[in-house]
């Protein structure tokens, strides 16, 4: 049953990892602007012209 000690510590380490990610994200300024990213994700990636040429060959 002493596995529970290990389990609890492992659980807190995993959760701590997420907490660290949260702190990192906050300090990085991700919560300064919570609206624009929702628009930004809608943009298509730029289409590269050489790729189009390749498609013709196919």
């Amino acid at each position: 049953m002493s596995i529970i000690f290990f389990l609890a510590i492992a659980a807190i380490l995993v959760a701590g990892g997420f907490l660290a990610a949260f702190i990192w994200a906050t300090k990085d300024g991700q919560y300064d602007d919570t609206y624009t990213p929702s628009i930004r994700m809608l943009f298509d990636n730029p289409v590269k012209i050489p790729e189009l040429k390749d498609k013709k060959d196919d």
Partner: peptide, 25 residues
């Protein structure tokens, strides 16, 4: 303004983390 707001968000995050784990324990 950003700095004070960030520190508050950080506090909420940290305290929320502790609260959840304390409750579980």
């Amino acid at each position: 303004k950003n700095i004070t707001q960030r520190s508050l968000i950080l506090k909420i995050g940290v305290v929320g983390f502790c609260m959840g784990n304390i409750m579980m324990m």
